[in-house]
Design a protein around this nucleic acid. Structure first.
Lengths: 338, 338
DNA sequence: GCGTTTTACGTAAACGTTTACGTATTTCTC
DNA sequence: GAGAAATACGTAAACGTTTACGTAAAACGC
């Protein structure tokens, strides 16, 4: 099969220890032998076997990344960042698509455990006790991205959802809107659901605007369809609404689509602000004003933290809140102009 | 550290060979010992070490997937399919983001070679000689997805781009359009560029419609911006155009956006048909009529073929053309109604 | 009940590395 | 130029499995 270190050693007339030293840049050989060995490596096309290395070093140079949905636009941008950081740090990444299923997640974690990955990135989902136990068993660093855990002490990389929602809402208020609705997520979702709704509510209250349950619709998911179906409901609850905040870009665009269908002009008759700044946000018409999460950066940062943790360059990693910005595009109009 | 097979053997008072047999479901032990060993495994929380296994079996149960861009919506859907098939077949997938760079691609291939992956999926890019050489060195099966290679004999999973473009164009013709333009890809792109332009051209010719270079704009990429910038150009070349075919959904939506800005009504004044059927196609307004590539299925199929090839269930894999369909939404109007 | 086959194990080599330790040779020190 | 220190290697064990081979006991056939 593939040439091994033994073949190289034989070809170059040295011991395998010497070859290993040369390959790994350790000291202990003359320039002459180094050249000889390098020629042998070249001649045979030798590639060190990472599996054998992993066995003895107890390091696989591989990390696992768990996403609830790989093909989601949110996930894919985060993934790109993670992959980038991992690669720069000399690690490969194994992707795992949990489909938000506990069973599948556990199965994947077991797999990653068997494969002896050096670390784990866990994205966009709540950390169940079951998972945390496995993390502990595995004794590898874990970093959370786009999520956080109240029960367990795990470093995370995310934006402050409360603040993001608060400022998104304030943005609408500053533009002169007074009747503002929200298309929210789930009340059971402690990460993207509750804090964003709280941010919305408190922004209204800060500016002494009325708030009631009628100002919000909740949804199971954060998808286009959820937003599309929510708009009519919200409109019924809050007939003279002039602006709305959607807890995700997909929902915002869904609402926009529903508005188009009903002949409601965006932004003239209804302003919409989203959350995420997915690539589609600038592709829709009118381009969506939204709270920008630096998704790729978040992935990248999470990857970098994990790599440092694995390499032992940092002992206890600090969690990190990433800055968000409000990207003004065309889906919000300024009422004060009129 | 983690308990090994030795620990289990000691705990259960048997040899490691017996433990191995039980773990792998091979014959050669009594029910009694089996129970004893299983209890030991349970008690110690033993997990077999996939690295050690890989070393001796020369199988890592891992495949590598190379994408030009992980966060592209096209890639991410394909990836989901691949991951799904791989997982079902008992394989993990390592993602590699080549960013269309030859250097990076080679670097990744070397890495995958060192990691001894059992197979490779190569997506959306042309297979350079350099890559093919490494494929051969690695002696692992390779399957192409959403691309093909004219120079090398590698199985692929893709749709017939010529046919897709041809039918997309015919769709416009059937709807009564006579002045049809195209926003195309690159003339140097043998997979998504040339065939789609040829399909467009031949469809026009079949229906005896005029065709000249002015009917097409070419682009370096297939992105939103490309489409957005192409529309004005195309409009200048073909002022009384009533419909256009874009070689990607992103470009189609870019063109749609440019049309909105210029006050051109879609589809009333300009019909647009795209290519890909990304998730965004149904999210934009008006929802995009497009040629649907079954991206997730393509990934899945490619994954399944690769797994079969690895397991030796199939010797020489047949390439596969996947069916495409034209998904009619709202971006194309029927001129014959008027 | 004796020979033969089957069953139920155990022993040890192998997979391809890394690395602690040992040793012969060279270089230095004075 | 003798002893010490440094250099340039080689030997062999270890990592955690699988598996070919060997062997004692059990089951079978008659």
């Amino acid at each position: 099969m593939n040439p091994t270190i033994k073949d190289v050693a034989k070809y170059a007339n040295v011991s395998i220890a010497t070859v290993s030293r040369i390959v790994n840049g350790l000291p202990g050989y003359s320039e002459d032998t180094k050249k000889k060995v390098q020629e042998a490596i070249e001649a045979l096309g030798y590639q060190p076997n990472a599996i054998a290395r992993g066995l003895i070093n107890k390091r696989t140079q591989t990390i696992g990344v768990l996403f609830p949905e790989v093909s989601g636009m949110l996930s894919s941008e985060v993934l790109e960042g993670v992959e980038n950081a991992a690669h720069d740090g000399g690690f490969s990444v194994i992707v795992c698509n949990t489909t938000s299923s506990g069973k599948r997640t556990v199965k994947y974690l077991r797999l990653l455990q068997e494969k002896r990955v050096d670390g784990i990135i866990f994205a966009s989902e709540d950390v169940k006790e079951e998972y945390y136990k496995i993390f502990q068993e595995m004794k590898v660093p874990v970093v959370l991205v786009s999520t956080a855990s109240s029960n367990y002490d795990l470093p995370f990389v995310r934006v402050n959802d409360f603040e993001g929602a608060f400022q998104a809402t304030e943005h609408l208020i500053k533009k002169g809107h007074r009747q503002i609705g929200m298309i929210g997520g789930s009340r059971n979702d402690p990460i993207a659901g509750v804090p964003r709704m709280r941010g919305f509510k408190e922004a209204l209250q800060k500016h002494s605007l009325a708030f009631s349950e009628d100002h919000i619709t909740t949804n199971e998911g954060y998808r286009f369809q959820n937003g599309k179906e929510s708009l009519p409901v919200l409109l019924k609850q809050l007939p003279n609404m002039t602006a709305l905040f959607a807890a995700s870009d997909e929902m915002a665009i869904g609402a926009m689509s529903a508005a188009h269908q009903q002949g409601i002009k965006v932004p003239e008759e209804l302003s919409i602000i989203g959350y995420d700044n997915l690539k589609i946000a600038e592709m829709c018409y009118p381009a969506l004003t939204t709270v920008s999460q630096p998704l790729k950066d978040m992935g990248q940062t999470a990857g970098e933290i994990l790599v440092k943790l694995i390499k032992g360059e940092e002992k206890e990693a600090k969690s990190q809140f990433m800055p968000f910005t409000i990207v003004e595009r065309q889906s919000v109009c300024d009422l004060r102009d009129k």
